[in-house]
Amino acid sequence: MHQVYDRIDRDPRFHALARARSRLGWTLSGLVLVAYYGFVLAIAFAPGWLARPLGPDNTVTVGIATGLGVIALSVALTGVYVWRANRSFDRTNADIVANATRVAGGPYDAG
């Protein structure tokens, strides 16, 4: 198995894939963390802002709308990641693995 890992390690496409995946993952994580901690810190330090009604005729407050918005954003970003990963990333990954195991003369030879 170690030989297969070694070959994958030497494949530049693997490192490009890992970089792309980690860039996407960390960017989306950053967005979720900013949105969520924004909401949490607003509760901690700016409760007055969250308590404002959305408009003159509303009782629904900024806080309620923000809370629902953070939930909607989280679900949407989850969808974005799965959509990207299950299309392009998985295909590239399959190519890299197929290449590394083919050279070895069979799937997952002892190593």
């Binding site: 993952g25 994580s29 979720v32 953070v70 939930i71 989280s74 989850t78």
Partner: peptide, 18 residues
């Protein structure tokens, strides 16, 4: 009370991404 709802959900994207 809503912080439980928002916090519980926002853990999920992190579980997926990381």
């Amino acid at each position: 009370g809503l912080i439980y709802a928002v916090g519980g959900l926002c853990g999920w994207p992190l579980v997926l991404f990381l």
